[in-house]
């Protein structure tokens, strides 16, 4: 429970932070909320020689909205989203997901970008942001590049970031039609990572037919997954019990869980089915009740 000795730097600009990363490379770790990095260091599973604390980099704070997207600064905390009801109008899935993460202590410190960079397959943001088709902006010595979340997550605890790249923000596209969303998470207790997590958002056109849908799955694969075939079967059709059941079965088939102390692979796959069915049904009701964007 005591980390190895390390050096600490607290840059005050993005350039300085990127500089430090290029200088120390493999020996350095970025510190954002510290809710994943510090436990790893305390267990001596991670032992960086340098900790680069980005909490004083002003460019990484705050968020802005453009016509077609919401851009979250890398230091956006889980709790900042959890408590911002204004987001519900255009981005209903964000608060749904934030509230399910860990406990209030972790949510006050942990950051959205840190969660993505950590690439824990059971993390809640990855499934949510995949479902929304979000991307991250990464800054390195060569400048900025935009990486879709699906391409960022390569494997368990592995991303496509270069050693000297920092995520500066997360871009979430704005829905074009009426949208409703639902996040479901099976956890053994509050503060636990998901046994199974499902985050989904559905947009419908004027006739009520599905015009866009994202279904993200957490904890049922080496990374968060997107249930593409389940999404495809819903496209262009109005939500109803039959197509929902069909989609739920396809989502379960897309899941690739491992058996462990949280349950067998068969169990987790079935919970995906149950949650996708419950989630889509809830979304159908929300859309019908007018509790959705543009209603």
């Amino acid at each position: 429970m005591f980390p190895n000795a390390f050096d600490y730097a607290a840059p005050t600009s993005l350039d300085e932070a990127v500089d430090l990363l290029s200088r120390y490379g493999d020996d350095a770790k970025v510190l954002a909320g510290g809710q994943s990095l510090l436990p790893m260091m305390k267990l001596r599973l991670a032992a960086p020689a340098w900790v680069i604390d980005i909490n004083r980099v002003p460019e990484l704070d705050g968020r802005r909205e453009s016509d077609d997207a919401l851009i979250l600064g890398a230091l956006t905390r889980h709790s900042a989203i959890e408590w911002d009801r204004d987001l519900d109008a255009d981005y209903p899935l964000l608060r749904e997901t934030a509230a399910l993460i860990a406990d209030p202590l972790v949510r006050n410190r942990g950051t959205v970008a840190g969660s993505l960079a950590h690439a824990d397959p059971a993390a809640d943001w990855a499934a949510c942001l995949m479902a929304l088709g979000a991307s991250v902006t990464a800054r390195g010595p060569q400048g900025d590049r935009l990486i879709p979340v699906e391409d960022l997550l390569v494997d368990t605890l592995t991303t496509s970031l270069e050693l000297d790249e920092i995520i500066t923000g997360v871009t979430v596209p704005r829905p074009a039609g009426r949208a409703a969303a639902k996040s479901l998470k099976l956890e053994r207790k509050v503060g636990d990572f998901a046994v199974v997590g499902v985050s989904l958002q559905v947009e419908v056109g004027s006739g009520g037919a599905v015009s866009r849908v994202g279904i993200g799955l957490a904890a049922v694969g080496p990374t968060a997954l997107r249930a593409r075939e389940a999404e495809a079967v819903l496209m262009g059709r109005p939500l109803g019990p039959e197509v929902i059941r069909e989609a739920a079965a396809l989502a379960a088939a897309a899941a690739d869980p491992a058996s462990d102390r949280r349950g067998s692979a068969a169990y987790k796959r079935d919970v995906v089915r149950v949650f996708v069915e419950r989630g889509l049904t809830a979304v159908q009701h929300r859309l019908a009740d007018g509790q959705a964007l543009g209603a």
Binding site: L186, R188, V195, R262, G263, S264, Y267, D270, V271, V274
Partner: peptide, 17 residues
């Protein structure tokens, strides 16, 4: 009585949602 254990008993007896 983890949820997965109860689920397994339910499945053995053909109970599902």
């Amino acid at each position: 009585l983890f949820p997965w254990k109860v689920w397994e008993v339910l499945r053995e007896h053909g109970v599902a949602e």
